[in-house]
C-alpha cells in the first residue's frame, strides 16, 4: 500500500477545496469498508484521503412526510436500519442494508459509499432505485441531483465529475398501498456477494387487486445496477395475478446481460433473474397488503 495524506474536514466547503487541490488524486472516505481494502490491495490509488464523517450533514438522517427521507452520504448502515422512519416507510432499503456485511461492517459501511463504489453487485443500489432515490451531488460548480439509476456508469465508475462528491441521498415519501422488497441470491447463507440481486416496489389500487405502478431493479447482471423500466411499466394497470408477475419477471430477465465470473455463470444468473424478480414482487405485493387473484 502506498502512503497517502489524510484530512478530516468539518464542512462541505473544505471538502470541495481539498478535492479541487488534488485534481483527481483525492478519495472520499466514509466507512472505508471498500476504499481501505482497495487501497491495500492496490486496486485504487489515493494521494489524499478525505474522511467526511465529521461533517454533520453527511451523517444525518431526516424525514418528514412532505419532503421524504434524506440520508447523509456517510451515514452508517446500522444508523439507517435503526431509524424508525426508515423501517416504517422504506422496507426495500431495509432489506438491502441488512444484507451488507455483518454487524461490524454495518457499523462502518455507508449507503453513500455503497453507491459511490459503483459495484454492479451492490445490494443497496437496486433497493434505492425501486424507492426512486435521488443523489445530491456537490462540487465547485454548485450542487446537482441525479436519479440513482443514472449514478453508476460502469463497474467501479460513477457519474461524479472531478471535484464533485456525493452529499446525500433523498427518497420521496411513499404513497398509500406501497410495498417494496429486495433480495439477493448467494450460494451460502452469509458472507457473500450477490450472484443476482433484485428489488421491486409496487403501488396498488384502492382494493389492492391492481397495480397502479411498479418498479423493478436488478443487480450483478450488467455493468451497472439496472432499472428494468419496461417490466415495471408492464404491470401498471394490470391485475395482481401470478401470470402478470411472471411476465414482468420475464421482461426484467430479458434486459439482464450477465457475464460469467468467479461468482456465477451467465446462464445461472440469467435464470435467477426471473426467479428473484418474481420473489421480490411477491414481497412487495405482500407488504402493500395485496393478494394474488385466485
Amino acid at each position: 500500500m502506498q502512503s497517502f495524506d489524510y484530512e478530516a474536514p468539518q464542512g462541505i466547503s473544505e471538502v470541495i477545496q481539498l478535492l479541487a487541490g488534488k485534481n483527481g488524486g483525492a478519495r472520499i472516505l466514509a466507512g472505508g469498508t471498500d476504499l481501505l481494502v482497495q487501497l491495500r490491495e492496490g486496486r485504487r490509488n489515493a494521494r489524499l484521503v478525505i474522511d467526511v464523517k465529521n461533517i454533520p450533514e453527511l451523517t444525518q438522517i431526516t424525514f418528514d412526510p412532505k419532503n421524504g427521507l434524506r440520508i447523509g452520504a456517510a451515514t452508517s448502515c446500522s444508523q439507517i436500519c435503526s431509524d424508525p422512519n426508515v423501517s416504517e416507510h422504506f422496507p426495500g432499503l431495509v432489506d438491502a442494508i441488512h444484507l451488507i456485511g455483518g454487524v461490524q461492517i454495518q457499523n462502518r459501511a455507508s449507503v453513500g459509499g455503497n453507491l459511490c463504489n459503483a459495484s454492479p453487485a451492490a445490494d443497496a443500489i437496486p433497493a434505492l432505485i425501486v424507492h426512486e432515490a435521488v443523489c445530491h451531488i456537490t462540487g465547485l460548480n454548485g450542487t446537482r441531483t441525479l436519479p440513482v439509476e443514472e449514478f453508476c456508469v460502469a463497474p467501479g465508475k460513477n457519474a461524479l465529475e472531478s471535484g464533485e462528491f456525493l452529499t446525500s441521498i433523498s427518497i420521496p415519501t411513499t404513497k398509500e398501498r406501497f410495498g417494496a422488497g429486495y433480495l439477493r441470491f448467494i450460494p451460502r447463507n452469509e458472507m457473500d456477494i450477490a450472484v443476482v440481486g433484485a428489488g421491486a416496489s409496487v403501488v396498488l389500487d384502492s382494493d389492492r387487486k391492481r397495480f397502479v405502478s411498479a418498479r423493478i431493479a436488478l443487480g450483478a447482471v450488467a455493468p451497472t445496477p439496472l432499472l428494468a423500466s419496461d417490466a415495471g411499466a408492464f404491470l401498471a394497470g394490470k391485475a395482481v395475478t401470478r401470470e402478470n408477475v411472471k411476465e414482468a419477471a420475464r421482461m426484467a430477465q430479458a434486459v439482464a446481460k450477465p457475464i460469467t465470473d468467479l461468482r456465477g455463470t451467465a446462464e445461472h444468473r440469467k435464470h435467477l433473474c426471473a426467479v428473484l424478480v418474481e420473489r421480490a414482487l411477491d414481497k412487495a405485493i405482500e407488504r402493500a397488503g395485496g393478494h394474488y387473484a385466485e
Binding site: 450460494p187 451460502r188 447463507n189 452469509e190 458472507m191 457473500d192 456477494i193 465470473d261 468467479l262 461468482r263
Partner: peptide, 16 residues
C-alpha cells in the same frame, strides 16, 4: 486463480 480469498472461496459459515 480467481477466488483466492475467503469471500469468494466459499467455505461454509455457521449459518450454512
Amino acid at each position: 486463480l480467481l477466488n483466492a480469498s475467503w469471500l469468494d472461496y466459499r467455505m461454509p459459515v455457521a449459518l450454512d
